[in-house]
């Protein structure tokens, strides 16, 4: 079977994020860029399915720049080194909203014809948690978001997915093709091995200018517009207490919360 796994280039989660003085975006100097952590989990899941189902193929897909300082090829090479078979980068320097991302992915699905698309449940930069659900709708496919376990039927015609929902675990079943978005505990992503990194250099990384997809009917006009970004209000640090007794006393008499 053929599996697409999506990759977004995001600032390392440990990076301290600052807003540009003019509010147009974030300061990107000295930011370390990584694969969105949930996309790493998605890639790992795709690879595990490939290892179980003979003759499977994993293709990474991403949207973004192809040159420094915004070269998504770095992240795609990492994914290829983990074991994916090939990668496709839709080249654009524009920051696209989830709906446009989903439309572009839908175009790739038309040509690649995967049986399954595995995505991270959210990107840790804009935290929208939307592209997977939108892609499912645009394709008219079933969706299983926040997946913690994915099982394919013996004939690979359907999937049973356990989802992390409020207050428990929900089990869904649907015929393939479909969309799965990965939650934290779906798996633990592997590291790229040295031989994997060597092999990755020879794997195909196809670049498609976004204009090519527009000629094929992709609508890149968004439905939302960023007006401005600003830093959140800062919370003042309080005081250190000496003992547990003093802490409980203050919570009772001063803060009046217990």
């Amino acid at each position: 079977m053929k599996i697409l796994a999506t990759v977004k280039r995001v600032p390392d989660p440990e990076t301290s994020i600052k807003v540009k003085p003019d509010g147009s975006g974030i300061v990107t100097d000295n930011v370390k860029w990584v694969i969105n952590p949930f996309d790493e989990i998605a890639i790992e899941e795709a690879l595990r399915i490939k290892e179980k189902v003979a003759g499977s193929e994993v293709v990474l897909v991403s949207i973004g720049g192809n040159a420094a300082p915004n070269d998504v090829k770095e992240q795609l090479r990492t994914g290829l080194a983990m074991g994916a078979d090939g990668a496709i980068l839709v080249v654009t320097d524009a920051a696209l909203e989830p709906l446009v991302v989903a439309r572009a992915l839908a175009k790739l699905v038309e040509t690649e014809k995967p049986d399954l698309v595995v995505m991270g449940k959210q990107a840790i930069d804009d935290d929208s948690n939307a592209a997977g659900q939108m892609l499912a709708e645009l394709l008219g496919w079933p969706q299983a978001t926040f997946a913690s376990k994915v099982e394919l039927s013996g004939d690979q015609k359907s999937a049973t997915v356990i989802r992390e929902v409020d207050g428990g675990l929900e089990t869904l079943r649907f015929p393939l093709p479909g969309i799965v978005t990965a939650d934290l505990r779906l798996n633990e992503p592997r590291y790229a091995s040295l031989p994997g990194i060597m092999k990755a250099r020879k794997k195909e990384l196809k670049e498609i200018p976004i204009g090519d997809l527009e000629k094929a009917g992709l609508d890149v006009s968004g439905r939302t517009q960023l007006v401005k970004m600003e830093p959140p209000p800062k919370r003042q640090a309080g005081k250190l207490v000496e003992s547990v007794d003093q802490l409980v006393e203050l919570l009772h008499t001063e803060a009046k919360v217990i």
Binding site: D126, L226, K228, E230, P231, P232
Partner: peptide, 8 residues
Amino acid sequence: YAGNVFAT
């Protein structure tokens, strides 16, 4: 960005 940015 994990609450580091408020966007309008």
